[in-house]
Design a protein around this nucleic acid. Structure first.
Lengths: 216, 216
DNA sequence: GTCTATACTCTGATAGAC
DNA sequence: GTCTATCAGAGTATAGAC
């Protein structure tokens, strides 16, 4: 009996949080109201307040769920793969998929954590850093094989490729011309080998700012 | 007399919009209140309402200003440069600089346009598309020289590199370890030549998803 | 665990004096 | 062009019945 109850609790939690995430994505944190969540869940505001005592508590729980989902999706995708290069490629694809194909929970985690303040915000930043640390480890696996250019900062590469991937969520539509596989493959080619034909690499390296350009 | 007045008007406009952008970046569109803007401008709410009849009108004007600034910064940076490769490199650097070193106006344009609804939203999307079209032209200049890999979509490359650049605004701090020049150069190397040593390009190309991985 | 009813606060916007 | 004063609505959160 206790087990059945527990299952229902979890299901309700995800149901509520999915709706909350969708509303936050549409209207932002301040634009999402507890009334709207309750209504979409078929409850009245007072009932939702029984589950979550404050609006902020909903978002904190939502982001924890997003972190769990994202991390486990990547771990699953990399399971049993030893080649560090392929691990990154698989992880990148898994990250992209949970971001755009799951629901709005991961999107909210990545784009709306600034909405939180004080303690809740610090907590989220810590969780996010942990997640990015995970990525850093994967990239370092490639570095340890001596496959990374030595003139580039690893943590900067992490942030830049993270940006290319996460930004996809701002424009991707399932009905669009590009499939997720095409996008993931193009990111992979761009980041690992660059977008220029090999013959042009020298030209790109040689391009220098004209004199007189102020340093930014 | 009329000229002096006009100068004051423009100055006031930018003053108000800078403050509004800063507040939106901190609290989101809904979290920014007209009262807060007025207070930070040393006005009372009624006075601000005389300048902008609705809250949405403030944001629309703000985004128009952001677009003007961003476009003119890039045009200035590319002025007199013929090499398409260098044009992109200079434009990218200028875009990055107005995004993180100017003030919060361009940030709000790129990250908060979803806050708008209806007519105002459509207007902003049109302006943004125009801006991205400008970038597409620059990238096509490189393609016309035959320097771009032919297996990649140009508009996808635009979106992906746009993502890598724009995401910088979410983590960059002027006091951080990286200078803007370092960041811009690393983006350039990553996007044009890739982050792997040339010897590893073959490995990256050869890495294939293991069988049994469902297509996403 | 859900409902009803409500207290309290903040918000965008307005009207009219100066 | 700025101020004072204020309205009507929406927001979070609460208290207590069921």
């Amino acid at each position: 009996m206790a087990r059945v109850r527990e299952k229902d609790e979890v299901a309700d939690r995800e149901f509520i949080l999915n709706i909350a995430a969708s509303l936050i994505r549409q209207h932002g944190f301040k634009g999402m109201t507890t009334r709207k969540i309750a209504q979409a869940c078929g409850m009245l505001p007072g009932s939702l307040h029984y589950r979550y005592r404050t609006k902020e508590a909903i978002v904190v729980d939502l982001m924890k769920l997003a972190m769990e989902r994202s991390t486990s999706a990547i771990e699953l995708a990399c399971q049993g793969i030893d080649d560090p290069l392929l691990r990154v490629r698989m992880g990148l694809r898994a990250h992209l998929e949970t971001l755009v194909n799951g629901n709005d929970i991961v999107y909210v985690l990545l784009f709306e954590w600034r909405s939180l303040e004080g303690q809740a915000r610090a907590e989220m930043i810590a969780l996010r850093d942990e997640y990015e640390q995970f990525w850093l480890g994967m990239i370092k696996g490639v570095q340890d094989l001596g496959l990374l250019r030595r003139d580039l900062s690893v943590s900067l590469l992490k942030l830049l490729s993270f940006g290319a991937v996460n930004w996809v969520a701002t424009w991707y539509r399932p009905s669009g011309a590009m499939t997720l596989d095409q996008i993931a493959d193009t990111i992979w080619v761009m980041v690992t080998q660059g977008v220029l034909v090999p013959e042009a690499h020298e030209l790109a390296e040689a391009s220098r700012y004209p004199s007189g350009v102020p340093s930014v």
